Simulated scan of single mutants.
Amino acid sequence: MTETPRLSPEDYARSVVAVPPLALDDDGHFAADANRRVLSHIADGGISTVLYGGNANIYHFGAGLFREALEGVFAVCPENLDILFSIGPDFGKAMDQAEDLKDVGIKNALLLPMAFPSDSAGIVAGARQLAEKLGFGLVLYIKRDAYLAPEALQTLIGEGTVSYVKYAVERGDPAQDPYLDAILDAVGVDKVASGMGETPIADHIGGRGMSTFTSGAVCIAPAASNALLSLYRAGRTDEAAELAAPFLEFERHRAELGGTSVLHDSMGIAGIAECGPLTPLVTNLDDAARKTLAPVIDRLLAAESAVRDRKIAV
């Protein structure tokens, strides 16, 4: 049995939270060596926490692959890296997966966002039942407007049903977000991570002072992404904006070509690890898309080298 420590808001704030893909072999099974290489690259860049969720395509995992992945990632994870594993998004699936987490001693779980059907009161009831079954509070993933009433979230955090929040409601202008303002007023900036990669962090980290942010690009350039977090926290916005440029370019391509697909295949293009086939209903990139991405990834790797070689002071 794996015994993992409970992660606190302070633990999440120690670094950017990486959201990696999950590598599969040609038969659709957990690829131990490739996943070990991904995790080692992330840890070597100074990241302390990884979240297996949307980028790992866990939404589409059946029961067998979920258990295989759950056991596999903890078997290959470096000792200096903590793992947050996702369950759901539907309630029945989450309850079944909660039993799997208990069986292997996992103490940190994120509830994936349910688009339809769900409502605020139902999410409250479901989160309570899941937390009771798990024996610990959940990380709640908020990805649409009015997903959960801020006062209800405040109650759930106060009673220990929810321990932390990943916020990922996309806005044309991240600075104009009354729903986020209401959530931060209700529960505080220390319990909420920005959940949309580098795109909104000039406001979310530099402006609002949120706890940290989650990222896919950090899996390619972990030290550089962590440097962004430090620069925005320090108010060094001009330096942060310059360093952010290749990350924002990468995120634009993810938005155009598919966020999960781009990150999954980019790990191989970057020379970190070939992650193999994606589980349907998501597909791997075609050759044209891979060719388009290659120079974008080169610029990310150049930023990573600059930070690791201390050519960018943080």
Rank of each mutant, 00 (worst) to 15 (best):
D11P: 06
Y12T: 02
Y12H: 10
V17I: 15
L22I: 09
L24T: 00
L24M: 03
D26I: 07
A32Y: 10
N35G: 05
R36A: 14
R37E: 10
G45H: 05
G46T: 09
I47P: 00
I47R: 07
V50M: 03
V50R: 00
V50Q: 03
Y52F: 15
N57G: 07
Y59E: 07
F66S: 09
A69S: 15
A75K: 15
P78W: 13
L81A: 09
I83D: 05
I83W: 06
G88T: 06
D90Y: 02
G92S: 14
K93W: 04
A94F: 02
A94C: 12
M95V: 13
M95E: 14
Q97K: 10
A98W: 00
D100P: 05
D100M: 15
D100E: 14
L101W: 01
L101I: 02
K102G: 13
K107N: 11
A115S: 07
A115Q: 07
F116L: 15
D119I: 06
S120M: 11
A121E: 14
A121L: 14
G122M: 04
G122V: 00
I123A: 03
V124I: 05
G126Y: 11
R128V: 09
Q129W: 08
K133F: 04
G135K: 07
G137D: 03
L140P: 02
Y141W: 07
I142H: 02
Y147P: 00
L156V: 05
G160H: 13
T161G: 08
S163T: 09
Y164T: 00
A168Q: 08
E170D: 13
R171G: 03
P174K: 06
P174S: 08
Y179W: 12
L180A: 04
A182N: 13
A186N: 11
G188P: 03
G188N: 11
K191E: 03
V192N: 01
A193P: 02
G195A: 12
M196V: 10
M196A: 10
I205L: 06
I205G: 01
G207W: 04
G209Q: 06
M210T: 01
T214S: 00
S215M: 00
V218H: 00
C219T: 14
I220R: 00
A223L: 03
N226M: 05
L229G: 02
Y232V: 02
R233W: 11
D238A: 15
D238P: 03
A241R: 08
A245D: 12
P246R: 05
E249V: 09
F250V: 05
F250Q: 01
R252L: 12
E256P: 04
E256G: 08
E256M: 13
T260W: 01
L263S: 00
G271C: 14
L278Y: 04
P280N: 11
V282Y: 04
D286F: 11
A289Q: 10
K291R: 15
L293A: 06
L293E: 05
P295G: 02
D298Y: 11
L301Q: 09
S305C: 10
S305V: 07
R308V: 01
D309F: 09
R310C: 09
K311S: 07
K311I: 06
V314C: 12
